[in-house]
Structures are given as C-alpha cells and as structure tokens.
Design a binder for these strands. Sequence first.
DNA 1: TCAATGACAACAGATGCTGTCATCGGCAGG
DNA 2: CCTGCCGATGACAGCATCTGTTGTCATTGA
Lengths: 190, 190
Amino acid sequence: MPRWESDAQGRLERAALDLFETQGFERTSVAQIARTAGLTERSFYRYFPDKREVLFADKKLEAHLVAQVEAADPSLTPFEALLTALGTADEIFRPREFLLRRIKVIAANPALAERDLIKLADIADALARALERRGVEPGAARFIIDVAIAISRRATSRWLAEPEATLSELVAQAAAELCEAVAPPAPTVH
Amino acid sequence: MPRWESDAQGRLERAALDLFETQGFERTSVAQIARTAGLTERSFYRYFPDKREVLFADKKLEAHLVAQVEAADPSLTPFEALLTALGTADEIFRPREFLLRRIKVIAANPALAERDLIKLADIADALARALERRGVEPGAARFIIDVAIAISRRATSRWLAEPEATLSELVAQAAAELCEAVAPPAPTVH
DNA sequence: TCAATGACAACAGATGCTGTCATCGGCAGG
DNA sequence: CCTGCCGATGACAGCATCTGTTGTCATTGA
C-alpha cells in the first residue's frame, strides 16, 4: 500500500474547483484546499507556484495549438493555418461540463480573470514563435495571432451557448463576419 | 500652510515608478513606496487598492476612447468609429518618455503584465458598452473591438519604435495589412 | 543492505492587504 | 474666540499569501 494517495496534484485541482465554486475564490484559503485534498499548505506550493495557478496548470491547449500550427500544410497562409488550428481546439475542451464550471468560477473573480488573460497571452506567444519558425516576421505574426484569437473567441463564445455546431464551422463563420466588418463600407450613391 | 503636502496620490505614483525602475517590482515593498512619498503604508492603500494598481489608476485613456466613440459620426461603421478613436490615442500618451519607462517596468514583471491585460480588457468592456449604445449587438461589438484593438496594438508598437508617423496613419496601415492577410489567398493556377 | 531520491510535514518569517480607532489641523457657526 | 464637526492621516493589530529550510519516512536500485 502506498504511503500517500496518488495524484496529489489532481486532488488539489479538484478540491480547489469545488471550494471556489461553493464559497468563492477569496474566501477559500490555500490551507483549506490542501486540507480537503489531504495535504498540507506547504505541499500545495510544491505543485503550484500560487493559489490561482491551481486552475491554470494545464498546458494541453497550448501544446495542441502549437503542434497543429507546426503540422499545418506549408502552402497555407499563416492566417489560414491559425484558423484551422483554433478550429480543432474543441478536442481539448473535452469534459465540456468541467470547462463550463471552470469558466464560471474564473468569471466570478477578477484575480482569476487576470490569470486567464495571461494564459491566453502565453498561448499567443507560443503561437507567435511557431509562426516565426514558418518565416513570418515577428511583429506581423503577433498581429495575425491577435486577430485569429479574436475570431476564436467569437466562435468559442457561440459554441458554448449552442453546442450543435462544430467549432471549426463557427470559426469560419466568424472569419466571414470579420471580412464583412472590415470591408470598405458599401459605396454610397449621392 | 497645509497640514500635509499636496498631491499625495501623484507622489505615490512617481515614487513607485522610480523604485520599480531601479530595484524591480517584487523587491520594493509598499512600505518603502509610502516612505519615499512621505506617507505610511496604510495611506498607500487609501489611494490604491493594491500594490500594482499604483501604475494603472489612470483612467484617462479609457475615458478618451469612449468619448471619441460616442462622438463619432453616426454614418460611420462601428469598425471605422473604433479605428478613428484608437488613432487619436496619442493625445493621451503625452509624456512619451514617461510612457516608455512605464512600459519597460510593466514588461519586466509578470504580475504587472497581468494587470496591464486586465486594464486593456476593461477598456474593451467600456468600448463594447459604447458600441451597444450605438445599436451594435453585444457579441458582435466585442468581436469588432477585439479586432480593432489588435490593429491598435500593431500600430502602437510601430509608433513606439519610430515616432515619425502619426498614430492614425499607422492604424490605417495596420488595417490595410489586415485586409491583405484576411483576403482569400491569391487564386492558384494549376 | 544501504545510499539516494521522492513525497511530504513542521516551523519560521517576510510581505500584502484589511479593520479599527486615535489624532490633528482646518473650517463653519455662534 | 470658542466649539464641535469633518476629513486626511497615523498607529496598531491581525489574517493570508508565499518562501526558505530542515527533518522524516517509504521506495528504488545497485
């Protein structure tokens, strides 16, 4: 019999999400999370550098997107490569119900929302490096990525509200919406 | 003679920027900032809710942008209104040298970068409300704003590197760059 | 068998941030 | 001139986050 229960990190993550959900982020202390998971406060900090990170340690999405971009057909425009990669992100959002719980908890607390933005920026940085490896100039890469992420946010927001459609379909739809908004206004006859 | 020196908040802001610049954000304590400004730590927290906010209390940019959007010609596309508003942001970035110091300090510390992203998101929220007042549907408003901010970031980044050009010129240039990237790829003859 | 390593606890301390009350000068109104 | 209120600040106590350090006990592998 093992001396300790296994998967200490996973226990901490689940305990934290539960507690944040029921009593809020601010009102749950690290010591409480650790106790719930059967560990000490100090052990919590061995797995996570700070209290918020317990909801953000997962690097799967970033890795997936970078891999998708790196594997993209070289004949694709950088922009197209990004959009197709972002359209496959639903493969990562697997337990959809877990994703929704997590989003609610994050939206309910400014400190968590802050960390969420940083994580998105980290993904953008990683994608920028991937595009640069494809030969895109750094400034342009960052710009294209910002736009692609805007499209992805639009699509994901719709996807969470009405899950019938594929994420990639919604991405294409948002891209079309962008073209429409950006296009010079319909010529006015005067 | 006043009982206390005037402009306590400004003194705190200047002291903080100086200290963050010379010894870093983490290594300067709130007590030290307050002492440098001739106040106590407790008084610091009367002006700023937390240590980072001392660099972000300024609401002028957000107010300016919202006012610009609200004053925009009703015949303009929401997207055009946003871009012209963002093109006038250089009116707010007045002591350019101060802006550069601040950007460097923020970039040097993840905690400050985090707060910076939240402030940008706050501006985006305020702009979304302004667009909704113009009749734009909320989801679409947020999307257009995300794209416009991407353009603005591209333009501002260029503007900081080479200040000859007007910000609004650079915004137009970035918008053109977007159209090019988004446009369907040149038809391939086969 | 035994040394190295991994996983954790225990303890101490700096700092961020908050609540509460006292203090002191300025400013009416009498 | 007195008096009493107001508003900015100081003084102090207290909790929570996060870090450094050290000790303890299994597991592993030669």
